[in-house]
Design a protein around this nucleic acid. Structure first.
Lengths: 273, 273
DNA sequence: AAGTGGTCTAGACCACTCT
DNA sequence: GAGTGGTCTAGACCACTTG
C-alpha cells in the first residue's frame, strides 16, 4: 500500500490535492480492486493488518483504529470515507458486527439491479432458462462500451426469465449479455446452468468480478420476430428495452446487457429524488 | 417550535426515542412544511431566530450555531441532520455562502425528475403545448393515490412536450397530470400558458408546493388512437408509459402524472447502485 | 475582515452482537 | 465482557464568498 497519505500531519497545512478521506476512500477501493477483502467479508482483516504493521496479533484495537493507524489519520476521517462507500452500497455497516464488503449473495440485495416488479406486490421470484452461451469476437459497439481492444473476445449469453406464479411458466424477460472474455475465462453454459442463485453472485464467487453500479437506457420497442418467438408473444408487442452497462470497482465497465421486458403484469420501478 | 429536543444533555442517558439529529431533521422538515424558509432561500433566517430567542439582532453568530442554540445541541449534530437532507436533495450547501432550500428554479436542477434524454448528448430543451386544464371530481384511483377524500375536486392537465432541434417540432411526450384542487386553488390554463420555466417552479412560486421526491412505474404500451393522434404517431406505436407519484415535504403525495414518451430519438436514463 | 461550509482531530458514552 | 458501529461533543484550521 502506498503511503500517499501518511506523510505529515494532514490536519493543518496543505491537503496536497484531495481531502484526506477521499484518499482513504480510493485506497480502500484499490484494496477491493486487488481482492484484498472479498464480498461478504469484513474489513479490515486484522491478521493481515497485524502482519503488515508487524504488530503482535494480540494487540487488540478497534478495526477502524487499525485502519486509522494504517493510514495515520483519525478515526473520524476513516469513518467519513466509509460513510460514503456505504452510501454507494460498496460497503455495508452492521452494528455490533463490523463493516463488510457488499455482496450480491444476501437476500436483501440479491436482485439489486433488477427493477422489474410484479404489479401486485407479491414477489414471486423468476426462474431462468439459459438459451445460449458462446465466445465470439466482440462486435464494435460492444467493444467500445466495454473498453475492449478491437478483436478481443467476448462472451455472449442469452437467457429467459419466467414468471411461475400462474399455472404455467410465462416468459417475462429476454436478456442478452456480453462479457469480456479475459475476465470470465472459465465461463461455460454448464457453469451457468448448474448455478443456483443470482448470476452476479456467480461472477463474484467464480470470477472475482463484483458489480458496483450500472447505467441503464430504457426505450419502448416493438418485439421483433425472433425475440417475440422466444418470449411467446405476438410480433410487434410493445416491450421495454433496457440497455445496461455495469461497472465494477474503479468504474471499470465489465458487463453490457440488453433486456427485453414484457410489462403487462410487471413494471419497472424507479425512485427519483 | 416544540422543545422536544432541548431537554437535558442528550449525549448521555436516554436518547428518548430517535437519535437527536433525526429529531433536528424532522424539526427542520416541519419548518419547511410550514413555509418558514422558502425554496431558494438560506436557512436559517437570522432575523426570525433573533426574534424567537429575543436576542439582539446585532448578536452575530454562525448560522449553524444559531440552529444549534435553537435546538440546544452541538454543531456536529445539526451538521449531520443537514448532511442527510442535502443527500436527499432537500437542502443545498454552498461553500462560503450558506445552506439553501432546494428549488426547481436553478439551471442545474431544473428538470431533475425528467429522465428522458436525447440519444445524442445534445440537450435541446423541449418546448411545451398546453392541451387542457380543467377541474373535475377526482376519479377513484386518482383520489386513492393522492389521498383525497371521495368526491374531492382534482385538476387535470394535459400537455405536450416537443423537440425543436430539427426543421419542425415533433411531439415527444404527452403528459397527463392530476393535482389536488385544494392545494392548487388559482391554477388555470392561462396561468400555465403564461408561465416561462419549469412547471414545478410555478408550483413552488405560486402554490407553495415543492416536489421533493417521486416514484415512477414504467411500462411499454401501444399508442391508443387518441394519444397517437396527439403525438402524431401511428396507432400502436410502442411508447414508454411513465406513471409518476410526486411527494412534498413529509411524504405527502401531491401530484399524479402519467407520461407517454416516444423513445425513438430519446431514451429514459437511470443510474443503479 | 467577516462569515460560511468543508475538513480534521480527540475523546466520550450508548446500542448491539457474540462468546 | 469485549468488540463493533452509532451517536454526541468541543474545538481547530482551511477554502470559498462577500463586503
Amino acid at each position: 500500500m502506498p503511503d500517499t497519505v501518511a506523510s505529515g500531519p494532514p490536519a493543518t497545512g496543505t491537503p496536497s490535492f484531495s481531502p484526506l478521506y477521499q484518499q482513504i476512500k480510493s485506497l480502500l477501493v484499490q484494496g477491493l480492486q486487488a481482492g484484498e477483502w472479498l464480498p461478504g467479508q469484513a474489513i479490515p482483516s486484522e491478521m493481515d493488518l497485524a502482519a503488515r504493521f508487524k504488530v503482535s496479533q494480540g494487540t487488540v484495537r478497534k478495526a477502524i483504529d487499525e485502519l486509522a493507524a494504517r493510514f495515520k489519520v483519525s478515526q473520524g476521517t476513516v469513518r467519513k470515507a466509509i460513510d460514503e462507500m456505504a452510501a454507494e452500497n460498496v460497503l455495508v455497516r452492521r452494528q455490533g458486527k463490523g463493516t463488510f464488503v457488499a455482496t450480491h449473495a444476501e437476500q436483501s440485495t440479491q436482485y439489486r439491479f433488477l427493477r422489474l416488479q410484479p404489479d401486485d406486490g407479491r414477489a414471486a421470484p423468476l426462474s431462468r432458462r439459459l438459451l445460449e452461451c458462446k465466445r465470439m469476437r466482440a462486435p464494435a459497439e460492444v467493444a467500445r462500451l466495454l473498453q475492449l481492444k478491437a478483436g478481443d473476445t467476448a462472451i455472449q449469453v442469452r437467457r429467459l426469465l419466467l414468471a411461475a406464479d400462474g399455472p404455467g411458466q410465462r416468459p417475462v424477460v429476454l436478456d442478452d449479455l456480453w462479457l469480456p472474455g479475459t475476465l470470465f475465462k472459465g465461463l461455460t453454459a454448464e457453469r451457468l446452468e448448474g448455478w443456483r442463485g443470482p448470476m452476479y453472485r456467480l461472477f463474484e464467487a467464480e470470477f472475482a468480478v463484483h458489480m458496483v453500479r450500472a447505467e441503464e437506457k430504457i426505450r419502448a420497442v416493438a418485439a421483433p420476430a425472433e425475440e417475440a418467438g422466444l418470449l411467446a408473444l405476438p410480433v410487434g408487442t410493445p416491450l421495454l428495452s433496457v440497455e445496461r452497462l455495469s461497472f465494477t470497482y474503479g468504474d471499470r465497465p465489465v458487463e453490457l446487457r440488453r433486456g427485453l421486458y414484457h410489462t403487462v403484469e410487471h413494471h419497472y420501478r424507479n425512485e427519483l429524488s
